[in-house]
Simulated assay, not measured.
Amino acid sequence: MTQKEMLTHVDHTLLTQTASWEEIKQILDDAMKYKVASACIPASYVKEASDYVDGKLAICTVIGFPNGYDTTASKVFMAKDAINNGAMEVDMVINIGWLKDKRYDELEAEIRAIKEAVGNKILKVIIETCLLTDEEKIKMCEIVTKAGADYIKTSTGFSKAGATFDDIKLFSEHVGKNVRIKAAGGISSLEDAYKFLELGADRLGTSRIVKLVKGQEATGY
């Protein structure tokens, strides 16, 4: 896989609490220049960003982020609002407490409701792997598949750890054919980016990969 091809799998991300419009605009400019899959930004900037890119880039945002314990009704509203503002992709965080309580039907119903809210746009389901057992990760592969989401995603990048190679292997073995995989959180080298894709990830949520490519260009390497 070439570097250009690898970049088409990147969700170029800026989700820090302090993100300003000038910083968001830089993310969007770089995302368009390097032809990444999307720019993943805070919901409050989606309308402005969508107008700015004018169809040249998919805008992604997050809901129920980063803790996931908002009510289903709140998440559905956030999802609809994001789509109405121009988002093409929505990354939601599951209610991790419900998973710990084995409230599997409610988890599935919530994902279904949010997928219905986003319609034909892409829904990615963040399960925060660093807080889960392997048994819980496997169960979420099953639930995400049954609920009809487009992606299962490892992490928010705001908890104890991010994506691991082992989690991508586990997802690949247990998720349904209709569900793709997104690795996110802590992807800090080009080598790791290629490895995640080789193991079965289809998307990479990262703030660093585009910066590394820019650095290569600046130094001539």
Rank of each mutant, 00 (worst) to 15 (best):
M1H: 13
E5W: 10
L14V: 15
L14W: 14
L15C: 09
Q17V: 12
T18L: 12
A19T: 08
W21P: 03
I24F: 06
Q26G: 12
I27T: 15
I27V: 15
K33S: 12
Y34N: 10
K35Y: 10
V36C: 09
S38T: 13
S38C: 14
A39L: 11
C40L: 14
C40T: 11
C40V: 12
I41W: 08
A43E: 07
A43L: 13
V46F: 13
K47S: 15
K47D: 13
A49W: 10
S50C: 10
D51W: 11
D51Q: 14
D51H: 14
D51F: 12
D54M: 11
D54V: 08
L57P: 10
T61A: 09
V62C: 06
I63D: 07
G64A: 00
G64M: 00
F65P: 08
N67T: 14
G68L: 04
T71W: 10
T72G: 01
S74M: 15
A79R: 04
A82N: 04
A82L: 06
A87H: 05
E89R: 10
M92R: 03
I96Y: 09
W98L: 11
L99K: 07
L99T: 02
D101I: 03
R103H: 02
R103I: 01
E106D: 15
E106M: 10
A109K: 14
I111E: 02
A113T: 07
I114W: 04
I114S: 09
K115S: 06
K115E: 05
E116M: 12
V118L: 03
I126T: 07
T129L: 06
C130T: 03
T133M: 03
E135A: 13
E135G: 06
E136I: 04
K137N: 02
C141T: 03
G148F: 06
D150I: 01
K153Q: 03
T154D: 08
T154I: 01
S155H: 02
T156A: 06
T156Y: 04
T156D: 01
A161K: 14
G162C: 03
A163H: 04
T164R: 12
T164P: 02
D166T: 10
K169N: 05
V175P: 01
V175S: 09
V179P: 06
I181Y: 09
A183I: 01
A183P: 00
G185P: 03
G185H: 00
G186Y: 02
S189I: 06
E191N: 11
D192G: 04
K195G: 02
F196E: 05
L197Q: 09
L197Y: 09
L199I: 06
G200I: 00
G205L: 08
T206N: 13
R208N: 14
V213D: 08
K214W: 00
E217P: 09
